[in-house]
């Protein structure tokens, strides 16, 4: 039985409420779904063992997805996100292994188990990975589970990666995923707040990956300044963010796609391409459309370039 088949039977048996979403997700792009799912689940199986990886990851996914939807329902009622302080999120979520390990294994699966995120996954592969220069030096901000960067490394044997995440769980989990993928010799993970990289030497990275961090910050523009600073002129970044999509640790409420575009333009980043996606099934009478946005950026060489 393939890992995809095993996933479908596990979900059918143990998480029937998640089956519809899984079917929607595979229908977006069956070949890509199978490719990514086999890869990601294969790494998870190496980390957790063949008998344990599905319960470990899919149970975490079900809880994570449920929490996200529940946050969205409370956001619909209250009109604002539940948290507004990074320090509180670090204390309650990022810094607590018992919370964060489940959270990260749950998020790990959203890359292909949330139908709208399949579009972001395709965008990343086709528009970012495939366009990297040779022997790229890549920085990943907030790798979390590590899946995005490790996938890039597995596709590009000439690439190296340095990842920075504020969460100790991330460093452990991303390292284990890299090890499982056989790329650990080309990656280094450091526990550090991405905003502290403001003081790093400028212009050393060929590319930056920064997925679903920006909405977790009180001052998201500081992150965009960091991305811009790290990149060489002409270097590219893959940036994603959430708009009117609540989660326990989402702080900054982006409402329109143009807000992210403008932030990038204000920090010497050309916006080459964007994609904005939303789930197919929404809460009844939803006021807010919970969106995920992906941006492909390029560091300007000058004002005119």
């Amino acid at each position: 039985m393939s890992r995809v088949q095993a996933l479908f039977s596990f979900v059918t048996e143990n998480h029937p409420r998640s089956l519809k979403g899984l079917e929607e997700s595979r229908a977006v792009a069956p070949e890509l779904f199978d490719e990514v799912a086999e890869k990601f689940l294969g790494w998870a199986a190496k980390v957790h063992g063949e008998t344990g990886y599905l319960p470990r990851c899919v149970d975490a996914f079900a809880i994570f997805s449920h929490d996200v939807l529940m946050s969205q329902a409370r956001y619909e009622a209250d009109g604002h996100y539940e948290n507004d302080s990074f320090a509180k999120c670090e204390e309650a979520v990022y810094g607590r292994r018992e919370v964060m390990d489940d959270y990260l294994w749950g998020v790990f699966l959203t890359n292909f188990m949330w139908a709208h995120h399949m579009d972001i996954t395709r965008f990343y592969k086709d528009r970012f990975i495939s366009k990297l220069p040779s022997a790229p030096k890549v920085v990943e901000l907030a790798p979390g589970h590590g899946g995005w960067g490790v996938w890039m490394l597995s596709e590009r044997p000439d690439a190296t990666l340095h990842g920075y995440d504020v969460s100790p769980s991330s460093i452990v989990i991303a390292s284990s995923v890299a090890e499982a993928a056989g790329v650990s010799g080309r990656v280094q993970y450091t526990r550090r707040n991405a905003l502290d990289l403001e003081s790093m030497p400028a212009g050393e990275a060929d590319a930056v990956i920064c997925s679903f961090l920006i909405e977790h910050l009180e001052e998201p523009w500081r992150l965009v300044a960091v991305i811009s600073r790290l990149l060489k002129p002409g270097g590219r970044a893959f940036l994603t963010g959430a708009l009117t999509a609540a989660q326990v640790d989402h702080i900054y409420e982006f409402r329109k796609e143009s807000e992210l575009v403008l932030l990038c333009e204000q920090h010497d980043l050309r916006v080459l391409e964007t994609i904005s996606v939303a789930p197919q099934r929404l809460l009844p009478k939803a006021r807010f459309l919970p969106r995920s946005m992906g941006l492909l950026l390029q560091r300007r060489k000058s004002d005119m370039w």
């Binding site: 029937p16 409420r17 939807l69 809460l283």
Partner: peptide
């Protein structure tokens, strides 16, 4: 269980819980 109630998916589950 959700297997036997048509339409009981993850989104409907939230409406139900609320």
């Amino acid at each position: 269980t959700a297997k036997t109630v048509a339409g009981w998916d993850s989104v409907m589950h939230i409406t139900l819980m609320m």
